[in-house]
Simulated scan of single mutants.
Amino acid sequence: MSSTEAPYSIGTPGRPWGEAEVALWLSRQVVQRSYAADVVSVIDTFRSRFDVSEYGRIDYAPDSYPLFAIRSRDWNDALPVVLVTGGVHGYETSGVHGALQFVDRQMANYAGRVNILLAPCISPWAYERIHRWNADALDPNRSFRADSPAQESAALMRLVEPIRARALMHIDLHETTDTDESEFRPALAARDGIHYEPDDIPDGFYLVDDSENPQPAFQQAVIAAVAKVTHIAPADERGEIIGSPMVAPGVIEYSLKKLGLCARVTDAPYVTTTEVYPDSPRATPEQCNAAQVAAVCAAIDFVLAEVASA
């Protein structure tokens, strides 16, 4: 930490948080929007067109949140299966509302061609508080592993277990925001008692591929579709996007399984994580939602073309 950089407001620099620090952090989290009004009410409008089911609940007393999945009606085991997820990080708004917009405007177009399983808001507690973590100060998107400590991650893993080996594609909808640098990364460093190294926020949309099974043609198909809706993030002066080398226009790679990321919750050969930048002066909330929808459609279209040509 530089001499001009103030320490995070909770904890002692260099010392990981204990129960007291987590409790103090939790006491500062306040509800800023309604999961029931913003998300559940929209899901309810889909019940006449798609199969909607409750796949679990998130309980942080006194709060309890039902978790919902939306499936293609007339699911056909002879068809390929794709997974769409949003709201792993509750503060990433277009991940949730882009998923809901896809259901409303596009999902029916794929009837009879592919089975779609969609979980639009994996972290409702964090959605309401516009936060990255859950109420235990854990990041669900680092918790997709056996014996997960995060309720949100464990619930999704149970949901997808029946299709885990069958899934052909999984697209996980996210955002990178200015608050990643102003709040969430400093909080992470403070929580873990490590040094915080500031980084730049990329201006534009990008994707995260799986370094263990990269699929460059798939990623570029998604990038090409989204470029018609919003701008694609360039690399910085180091040739990187958010600290990782840009391996193709708008694409970086992570070791998804090792990091416990949602995009590797199945064995699907085609996976990607979207990253929309809602704080750009060149993007509106409507564009951000539309970018997520374009990404989902392009991803499904790509894998269906692959199936057709096989």
Rank of each mutant, 00 (worst) to 15 (best):
P13V: 04
F46E: 02
Q151F: 12
R282D: 12
I10H: 14
D180T: 13
S48G: 14
D178H: 10
D180Q: 12
A187F: 02
P285K: 07
A294P: 01
A224I: 01
C262E: 03
V276R: 09
V265M: 11
E54A: 14
E306R: 15
V40Q: 11
A150M: 14
L100Y: 05
P162K: 07
G87V: 08
G86V: 06
V81C: 14
A154G: 11
R158Q: 12
D44H: 10
W75N: 13
A111N: 06
M246W: 02
I58H: 03
A189F: 00
I194Y: 05
V114A: 03
A224T: 03
Q215F: 01
F46A: 01
P120E: 11
Y60Q: 14
V103P: 00
S94H: 14
S41A: 15
Y196N: 07
E161F: 05
Y254H: 12
N289V: 13
E19Q: 07
A298S: 09
I163V: 15
E237L: 13
S48N: 15
A291F: 08
A295C: 09
A305P: 09
I171L: 14
P202D: 03
A190M: 07
A224W: 09
G239H: 03
A167G: 12
E181Y: 11
L67G: 01
G193P: 05
W25A: 08
R142L: 12
E5N: 07
C262Y: 00
D203H: 04
A137T: 07
P66C: 03
